[in-house]
Design a protein around this nucleic acid. Structure first.
Lengths: 195, 195
DNA sequence: GTCTATATGCAGATAGAC
DNA sequence: GTCTATCTGCATATAGAC
């Protein structure tokens, strides 16, 4: 039995995803929750609080998933493969939250926006560290680590834009494809060699 | 000397890009144009007309760029390489319009939205035809053509999210990287093999 | 915790003078 | 073509009863 706050949150995710943050009114949300819009304010004092919670939760969740993927020892290319798997898996399992995160950041006040950007940078830094370690160990070709990380992360995030649950591919198949593509690309002379 | 209509259009692109379509008011646009908001209605009867024009122009322009890239004969992998170059080049030269196209489609009425989606599908179909031809000719490995096209197009479009004009890389360098990555990926056993 | 009623503001859009 | 003035509606948010 979900709490009212939880119901509101899932309805908000649904509508922000489908119509966008600004185009979604609190009346829309209230109607779908089966309550009056004034009641929303008891649970979330401002509309922006809903958006902020969605983005913070998503960032924390994906960071946790990365934690698990990187726990334990492994060769650096295996580690990166696991990170890719975790990232892609999260992005196909949480398409709505992730697409909201990508397109509604501007709905936040400067303070809240900075919070999210900082979380995002911390996440990127962990991927960059993996790439740098692989380059250091000469497992990957020399490359501009930051640029490579942007290319890889946008590539792996973009899957949220086209993946469909009833599509012809399972998540595992897609992960396999992206792992091959990126790891081949990072090895000597094969692709992701940003100078 | 730009016409007023043109000024309005560039201001709209600037603001829709920076703040988003819904968060941009016609007063904002008018102020930056140095006119009163009622004057906007002489040039564009509805706010949505501005958004529609941006999306239609962008789609027409990128389709034209693809025309040029595919004019003349060439081997199928060379053709695809040219298509990638054209697509990436367009996406780094028109970042704002392209990012608006990607995130503000919901600002359009159903009719207008359908128009854009149809243009988009036609564009995708041309890329799919290239991939299919390469598979047919056994230059590329067998793969799910539609899925491969989505992966490739989102990959090549995502560059608009991270490319910076004063960044460390030129457009040509990025194009080279993406061409290598994708063409290697499509050849036998190297990556973009969606079953 | 949820309700009814309402305050307040600004949005998109129009009318009509110049 | 641009202006001033205004219409109309809906948005977020609050007050206070139950």
């Amino acid at each position: 039995m979900p709490t009212t706050a939880n119901t509101i949150m899932s309805v908000a995710i649904e509508l922000f995803y489908k119509k966008g943050y600004f185009a979604t009114s609190l009346s829309d949300i209230a109607r779908l929750c089966g309550i009056k819009k004034a009641s929303l304010y008891y649970h979330y004092p401002k509309k922006e609080d809903l958006l902020k919670a969605i983005l913070v939760n998503a960032m924390q969740a994906v960071a946790r998933v990365l934690d698990e993927a990187l726990a334990g020892n492994a060769a650096i290319d295996v580690k990166l493969a696991r990170a890719i798997a975790a990232h892609v898996d999260f992005h196909i399992k949480h398409q709505k939250e992730v697409l909201i995160s990508d397109s509604e950041l501007r709905g936040l006040s400067p303070d809240n926006r900075e919070t999210i950007i900082a979380m995002r940078k911390a996440y990127e830094a962990r991927i960059q560290a993996l790439i740098a370690e692989g380059v250091e160990a000469k497992v990957f070709a020399r490359t501009n680590v930051k640029v490579a990380s942007y290319a890889i992360l946008t590539l792996c995030s973009a899957v949220a834009n086209w993946y469909r649950t009833n599509g012809p591919l399972t998540g595992i198949e897609i992960i396999r494809v992206y792992q091959d593509l990126i790891l081949n690309g990072l090895r000597e002379g094969k692709g992701l060699r940003f100078s």
